[in-house]
Nucleic acid binder design. Sequence first.
DNA 1: TATGAATGAGACTTCATTCAT
DNA 2: AATGAATGAAGTCTCATTCAT
Lengths: 219, 219, 219, 219
Amino acid sequence: MPKISEARKETRRQQILDAALICFSRDGFHTTTTADIVRESGVSQGTLYLYFATKEDIVVALADERHQGEAMINALAQGEQDPIRGLLALIELYGEGLTDPRHIDMRRVGIQGWGEALRNERIRTSAVEGLATVRAAIARLIERGQHTGQIRVEIDAIAVSRTLVATFQGLVLQIAWGEVLDLRACGQVVLGLIRDSLLTPEGRASFEAALATSPVHAD
Amino acid sequence: MPKISEARKETRRQQILDAALICFSRDGFHTTTTADIVRESGVSQGTLYLYFATKEDIVVALADERHQGEAMINALAQGEQDPIRGLLALIELYGEGLTDPRHIDMRRVGIQGWGEALRNERIRTSAVEGLATVRAAIARLIERGQHTGQIRVEIDAIAVSRTLVATFQGLVLQIAWGEVLDLRACGQVVLGLIRDSLLTPEGRASFEAALATSPVHAD
Amino acid sequence: MPKISEARKETRRQQILDAALICFSRDGFHTTTTADIVRESGVSQGTLYLYFATKEDIVVALADERHQGEAMINALAQGEQDPIRGLLALIELYGEGLTDPRHIDMRRVGIQGWGEALRNERIRTSAVEGLATVRAAIARLIERGQHTGQIRVEIDAIAVSRTLVATFQGLVLQIAWGEVLDLRACGQVVLGLIRDSLLTPEGRASFEAALATSPVHAD
Amino acid sequence: MPKISEARKETRRQQILDAALICFSRDGFHTTTTADIVRESGVSQGTLYLYFATKEDIVVALADERHQGEAMINALAQGEQDPIRGLLALIELYGEGLTDPRHIDMRRVGIQGWGEALRNERIRTSAVEGLATVRAAIARLIERGQHTGQIRVEIDAIAVSRTLVATFQGLVLQIAWGEVLDLRACGQVVLGLIRDSLLTPEGRASFEAALATSPVHAD
DNA sequence: TATGAATGAGACTTCATTCAT
DNA sequence: AATGAATGAAGTCTCATTCAT
């Protein structure tokens, strides 16, 4: 029987992760010391190691946390009946996530994680799974669109999904660097790709209809 | 009159940078110790600091070196008379650079640099300048294409260039992670965007002609 | 509530300072390594830096510690009702301090500090304050003696105090160098200065009386 | 037969010592690097070691150089026929040396040397010999005064000479620390000691006569 | 469960000295 | 005789982790 309730334990854990996110965003994984996290979180040095075995575990835990958010977003997109609508919903959601100030630390830490993932098995696994989840969601939407005749059958769903995700990743990076970019205009470029390159004439009709009822406008 | 020729000095410097690139690619900036670089390069601890004042200076020097390569590639692209041909040349060159095994360490180190750039002024400057160089080259090609009537005038050249660069960045990342992706197919997606979304009917003629004489095939 | 009592903490700190004093006396500030202090004190490298932020801080702390001892000695001297007695008490105390084997390391380190004080603001401040404290005590005794008519009014109290302190400093140095000197005889020279050059006839009476009840004999 | 003339060699050597003096005065022995001396002197790193085997040798050479100056001063004092005049001449000369701006670096380096002398045999030897030279000169003057009946026979010549030198040392220190002190007044204290405590009535007559023809005035 | 003092391995950097030219 | 690039030992300080309380 635990002396401390499961809920209280989770609160503590989250308290540490929140602090770590702030530190990592500000100073990077390696420059951040456990002492920094301790200071930021208000727990003691010893307590930190009661919840995480190593500093690396904190990094991994944060990577996994990001992942969860992505899974949620996708579920949302798959819920759409019309695959074109689903695609647009996904783009819109990710587009919003790109600039939402509440996620700025997450995005910054995520970019650091890209580098870590090159050499850290656990982090790469986490990153690649996140990538795969989104990619699969997009690919499935495209395949559904091909079945419904809205998307051209000769389109390589995998390649498109990879490319779209790549574009998002690059935009995340540029925004995090403080580049001033017209995200709306970039979104139009992506929508242009979909409309002009992917869709069949029937698909284009759904596309226009979807845009009319969506905050993302085509021109 | 220097006892050691300027050339010899440059060789030494490069020797250190080469070693550092290998180490950084393998272990990351922070995990790599100066002792590692010393071991890899064959120079002594003291000599290392004869050529670079701090470890950070080595990182920055590598960032700047990458940058130079990019400037060269762009000059190449601007040489093309036909803007569409120039655009395709750029895409082809970067596409090749994406998988060229000689640059694998550079790409891995570059990705680490993305994270550093978030917090290190000198590295961000270097990274952002590299980005700007490529972006500007693409934007100029597009604008030239708009003047020649090959590219639709309502296209936002800046947004397209940013988006294209973003896509490249994302693909660099995915490839570095060891993701197995059909780069040819992804290239087709990008070419599709250009052909279907950017070009005028006249532009499309140049496009087909250019592809016919290029290693990147559309079908 | 601290896990470790304030007293225990102070003990640790003193333990380090004691070790440092021994090392500095033996090897000098610059030749002494933190490893030496660690070895001598029995604490670990890490612990050393838990109590002192830098090696220089240890040096400064030792300088300040010396200072405190001096303040105490002076309070003692000011307690004397008769200024002549006070003066003699001071001289006697300092004379004893000159050869007391318990303070040998302090004196040696103090001399090193004289050199450091030339270039180190914090150490100079500490040294100059110590000097000023003693000087002021002597000057005040002299002024009191002038008011009571025991010391000639045309005497420059400040100059005398400075000169007396200077003499002490020089003797400290010579003794530390291992010079074999007859400290009793040197004391007589100083007493001679006071008796013959400073005192009024009335003062001389107190002087003789004071000597008769003091361990320093004029014979 | 040397390739380089003895004179030119000596010039080089002095050039290095001059630079070292400046560096040591500014930064201290230990903080000064051979690179600093090289920079200040204009010779090369290699050349430095052509003239001095080790950095310590430079320090010792400077200590010995100081020493020579002292020997000269004393010869001057011993030239005086009248021992009282000689004593006053010595005091005057040293008093001037105390503030002469041309010797400021020498005094600062000398003070550093006091600390080094505690642990470095060669430097202590040099320092102690310098001290002994001056002390002996003063003692001899006093003994001569005792023979001529100008100085009281019960005076301990050794103790007085030690005490006088000590006073000078202390004043050197205080001045080097930037203490604002009335050197004239301090000189009067020392003169007072001599006149009131050391001299016989006959001696006092010579004393007054000497002062009248000297820049150091008693009243 | 919580604390925070203690640890010690190891990182970066400096610098006196050497030696090939 | 003169140079200055090269060396590598050693120094200061940091920090992830442990453990007695």
